[in-house]
Amino acid sequence: MLPSPLLEVSNLQVSYHIRTKSVKALRGINFSLFENEILAFTGESGSGKTTAALACCGLLPANAHLKGSVRFKGVDLYSVSVKKLHQLRGKGIAFIFQDPQSALNPVLTAGKQVAEVLHRHRGLRGQILMQETRKLFRQVGLKHSHITSYPFALSGGECQRIMIAAACAGNPALLIADEPTSNLDLIVENEVLALLEKLQKGYRFSLLLISHDLRVIARLAQRVAIFNSGLIVEEGTVEQVFKSPRHPYAKRLLATVLHKGAGE
């Protein structure tokens, strides 16, 4: 194992306060993510995967209450100043959302949204900014004509590519992808996954991938963590977990795929 992890989460507990009630979303999870590694989260809806991911970049909603610590490059995200946190986001940690069409601002062109991140984190301007934007669009497999398109005129796959371009614009050390392909059809999903794989090799960022789809995990991830009711019930390398699951929930989850004869 590498000496110091890029992201280290220890005893993370998150509860949401809804009116007078308090709902525990995470009940003390521990995991670490090393540089240049792909870790996948899986588990049923409401098991706390997304909450864990949001907590990793300090984006929990206002009614969330958090205990434990999230350390990114040795810095506790919940004790640094707001200014530092703004700098960390985008440059250190980037996020890709489930529904790309609603995650893009509908009244800004695709190019502007990517350029905004470039401007913010690399201080680029004018001609150089345009060049870099074009370069990023090329990298994610979009045409130059897409730069001036608005999100509603683009397909889901194209929007997700724009999100990925915006995420890569800050040259992040950690990319969190929250079900990046669950709204896309299989062919587009395949393309987007190939793109993520390619970019991960190129930019050498760590990837935290959240997915329901075990095929996606088998294809991309090195390690996997299975969530159930706010806890990580099983964690290990993909081969180890997929071949010989130990926790009953993990066994049940993997059995669903094996029945269909898909996945490894």
Binding site: C57, L59, H86, Q87, L88, R89, G90, K91, I93, A94, F95, F97, D99, S102, A103, L104, N105, P106, E116, V117, R120, H121, M163, A166, A167, A169, G170
Partner: peptide, 15 residues
């Protein structure tokens, strides 16, 4: 979502 996304890429309050 896009507001969360914009926050996530480090946009400040004014932006």
């Amino acid at each position: 979502d896009f507001f969360l996304a914009a926050r996530c890429y480090g946009a400040g309050h004014l932006r």
